[in-house]
């Protein structure tokens, strides 16, 4: 017998996994390193357990993969099999990952803007100090983040 085994994206980030479950409307409780979902099979609540591999692995009754699962299947909703559920979680997890990358990029952009503002202020302050020392009269105007300094002095 041949088989092709395909795994889902490893759920290594708990925050993203919770965000994904939120997106799918799956209820859960976080208990230690377990994320216990509201999906229930013969053995109880299906859960994500943090494994030694550093990823959250889905723990469930192995028979719950069958579409005609004979035991009680509470809150399975449109994801009747484990595979279909994990595929949905994977998709939502990837969406959450994309949003995280956008957030990080935005945060970095804000930090870079702040660094530039500080740089401009440093140049401004140092130039004004030196100009005062050289006997200049200083007039300053601003347009947004732009600074204009007009330094004048009279020489004899």
């Amino acid at each position: 017998m041949s088989a092709i085994v395909k795994t889902v994206t490893p759920f290594t980030n708990q925050d993203l996994l919770l965000e994904a479950l939120d997106e799918l409307g799956v209820e859960y409780n976080v208990v230690g390193t377990s994320i216990i979902t509201d999906r229930k099979d013969y053995y109880g609540h299906q859960s994500f357990e943090l494994g030694r591999n550093g990823a959250f692995n889905f723990s469930h009754d192995s028979s719950a993969e069958r579409t005609n699962y004979p035991w009680s299947s509470i809150n399975f909703r449109e994801w009747k099999t484990v595979t279909s559920f994990l595929n949905a979680v994977e998709k939502a997890y990837k969406n959450a990952y994309g949003r995280m990358i956008e957030r990080l990029a935005e945060e970095e952009r804000i930090r870079e803007e702040e660094r530039k503002k500080q740089y401009v202020e440093k140049i401004r302050n140092e130039t004004i100090d030196r100009a005062k020392g050289q006997g200049y009269t200083i007039k300053e105007s601003r347009q947004g983040n732009k600074v204009k300094l007009v330094l004048t002095r009279t020489v004899y």
Binding site: Y136, G144, N145, K146, K148, L149, L151, R153, V155
Partner: peptide
Amino acid sequence: QRITIEIDE
């Protein structure tokens, strides 16, 4: 003597 210094964003 006049010096105009413009520092952009």
